[in-house]
């Protein structure tokens, strides 16, 4: 067992983990952060995407011990209280989800995409989420959602929105 200290969605945790524990299993099983889900075992599907120190990562391909001393943001930490993140809101308004299983990872990947490229073209959006598989939507409404969010975030001057930690 190795002790780790991690800040997740704005709260601090101190835990003993086996080194082989994947970050996603730590989040789900030890912290109860079940909003982040597992979809594959080869890092292809992206359902488990979270932000580690502000960058999107696939939490099934990071060890929990590697997050020691880091800040993790999951889908459960991107809204500002009752106010949805613009990307969450856009997924709802553009019908960018059906079963919703890929959605947490897709939203986290999209937030990361917009952080790096606030005004992406359709092609750049598709490239930006190519590591996240969705079996329901055919992606078209996801692309529209990211476009809407980009528009709202830039018009609100908020495209530099802090994506690490809860925004209390």
């Amino acid at each position: 067992m190795t002790q780790i200290n991690v800040r997740v969605d704005g709260a601090s945790y101190s835990d003993d983990v086996e080194p082989r524990t994947l970050l996603v299993h730590y989040l789900r099983e030890q912290l109860g952060k079940v909003g982040t889900v597992v979809g594959c075992d080869t890092s292809n599907c992206g359902a488990c995407t979270v932000h580690l120190d502000g960058e999107s990562v696939k939490s099934c391909t990071v060890l929990a011990v590697q997050a020691d001393g880091s800040e993790v943001t999951t889908i459960e930490g991107v809204a500002d209280g009752a106010t949805l993140h613009p990307v969450q809101k856009a997924f709802h308004e553009q019908h960018g989800l059906q079963c919703g299983y890929c959605t947490p990872g897709m939203i986290m990947a999209s937030i990361d995409l917009l952080k790096n490229n606030p005004d992406p073209s359709e092609h750049e959006i598709r490239e930006g989420i190519e590591g996240n598989l969705c079996r329901c939507t055919g992606y078209q409404n996801i692309v529209k959602a990211v476009q809407q969010a980009a528009g709202e975030m830039s018009s609100a001057g908020a495209h530099s929105v802090e994506t690490t930690g809860a925004q209390a």
Partner: peptide
């Protein structure tokens, strides 16, 4: 717009696992 979305876009739903 879908009623289902609120719990799905916030990671607050119940999957069997």
């Amino acid at each position: 717009l879908r009623k289902e979305d609120a719990r799905l876009i916030t990671g607050k739903t119940t999957w069997t696992d």
